[in-house]
Amino acid sequence: MDVLIHLFVGLHIIGIAALLGGFLTQMKAMGRGTARFVPGMLHGALTMLVTGVVLVGLNEADHHSVDTIKIGVKLALLIVILGLVYVKRDEERVEKPLFALVGALTVANIFIAVLWT
């Protein structure tokens, strides 16, 4: 079971890398006001959602304790990110504050995962 959990943790990290990487590649465009949500950002967020749900299930099945408050906060942030990216995915330009919000929520989600013990 541990190998399976580690596999999904790796996939979860790949998802967050895709989301954050997509944001970082658009930073220069954000400065010009021409940033857009690239497909990799949506795919990364969806990967995070699916692997996160699987990880919670696997950890509970393996009788590990799961901090449901932490998972709930991370899920809420991810749902906001997913909603914003999904709704605005076809637009040529995304407003700077909206684009910056997705980046800030992504970074917040990372720090919650790492620092909340």
Rank of each mutant, 00 (worst) to 15 (best):
G72R: 06
A17D: 07
I110F: 10
L49K: 01
V54F: 03
V53W: 04
G57S: 02
R32L: 15
G72A: 06
V54W: 03
H6T: 06
L24A: 14
V102R: 04
T117I: 12
T106F: 00
T106R: 02
I69Q: 04
D62H: 13
A17T: 15
G52D: 10
N59D: 10
M30N: 14
M41E: 11
L7C: 04
R32G: 12
E95V: 01
F8L: 10
G52S: 11
H6V: 07
M1H: 06
V102Q: 04
V3R: 13
V66L: 09
G10R: 04
V53D: 00
V85Q: 06
G83I: 07
F99V: 05
G33M: 12
E60K: 15
A76E: 01
R93Q: 09
T117K: 15
L105N: 04
A113P: 00
T51C: 08
R32S: 15
E92H: 03
D67K: 14
P97D: 01
E92D: 08
L42F: 10
L115N: 07
K28D: 15
I13P: 02
G21M: 13
L19F: 10
A104F: 13
A100T: 02
T117C: 08
T51K: 03
D67A: 14
I5Q: 06
A29N: 14
T34E: 15
V73R: 05
I71S: 10
F111L: 14
V94M: 08
T25E: 13
L11D: 01
E92I: 05
L55I: 04
S65D: 13
G52Q: 10
D2M: 07
